[in-house]
Nucleic acid binder design. Structure first.
Lengths: 180, 180
DNA sequence: AAGGTTATCTAACCATGATAGATTACGGGT
DNA sequence: ACCCGTAATCTATCATGGTTAGATAACCTT
């Protein structure tokens, strides 16, 4: 009368997420199919559904992990505006597909005030802390600049090799005292 | 020995693009399938392939149209920074799915210097002209702020009802004189 | 060793993008 | 008016992917 032991779902979820992320970074999200993942893991498709209710849930999990990684990357440098801004852009450029899952792909993650998952809040805090005196509005604008730069750069919309100059200017705009 | 008359491909493309755009705005891009489009137009799927080589080509066409519309929206207001910035954000918020096709969805459009289609250059010019003294770098940063604000807002990542405050701050940062 | 519970697998369903081959509509030439 | 050939359209189908129902197999307890 004893059931077959349940597999370690956390470990399975972890493996699936890691593989999905790796696959996405190397071959794009289009290559991340349930069949491909299952095959590479040596199981069948249905097993994946014990870990994630849908492909969307899996993509969301990768995105959520991505927010945690981004937060860690921000916290790993000192909290000066320049260091945090550069860390943000470097991280986004280093993991473009994960960043895509976080911001561009259809997402089931919630961002409304209450339901916002901790990793997201943590990542936002990492930006916010870089601008000590800033209110919500200023933090949101700072984040918008960074996100805009990261996205447009990843999409090939900006001139090559000018990121440093753009970063310098953005930094100056966000930190300088204004007159008049 | 006379062939059946060729249909007006331009008109067909136009109809398909318009329908795809409408459908995307009302039900999301997931609802924009070749079958659904064909059915709504009263033809069969293969006919669509006379107008567009693939679904991707169709999405790209919607995006390209979107750049033209955005350019027109910018040109419709005076060239002051504030007016143009507001026009950009209003337009993005009014047509979120088209904006998604322009910037977030996988795209086959080219953005490299030479091959960049005219509508894209025209839209960028519309932003650029709003900052007369600005060099390329400043124009790119300005665009990044706008794009970041538009995207994060559309994705529900920013507080509701604060767009005016963010716009005011962004405008100030981009236009004020700095000291020190 | 046996039984019952539950994880896994096999097999399939359904929707979608795309295409090959049959069919039909057109319009000029007789 | 009637063929005839061209090319556009339609019917039917393939291939792939997400997802799920039902069959099978593994495990633990007794």
């Amino acid at each position: 009368m004893s059931p077959r032991p349940a597999p370690d779902l956390n470990q399975r979820r972890d493996r699936v997420v890691k593989l999905a992320r790796t696959l996405a970074e190397s071959e794009g999200w289009g290559a991340v199919t349930m069949r491909r993942l299952a095959g590479d893991l040596g199981v069948t498709q249905p097993v994946l559904y014990s870990a994630f209710a849908s492909r969307q849930a899996l993509v969301d999990a990768v995105a959520l992990d991505g927010f945690d990684d981004l937060a860690a990357a921000l916290e790993a440098v000192d909290s000066s505006p320049r260091a945090r801004m550069r860390a943000y852009l470097d991280h986004a450029a280093a993991h473009p597909r994960v960043y895509e899952a976080m911001f561009s792909l259809p997402s089931g993650l919630t961002f409304a005030a209450e339901a916002t998952p901790a990793p997201l809040r943590r990542a936002f805090s990492g930006i916010r802390e870089a601008f000590p005196g800033a209110d919500d509005t200023r933090a949101e604008v700072a984040w918008s600049v960074l996100h805009g730069l990261a996205t447009l750069h990843a999409g090939g919309r900006l001139r090559e090799g000018q990121m440093q100059a753009r970063l310098d200017l953005a930094h100056r705009l966000l930190t300088e005292q204004a007159v008049g």
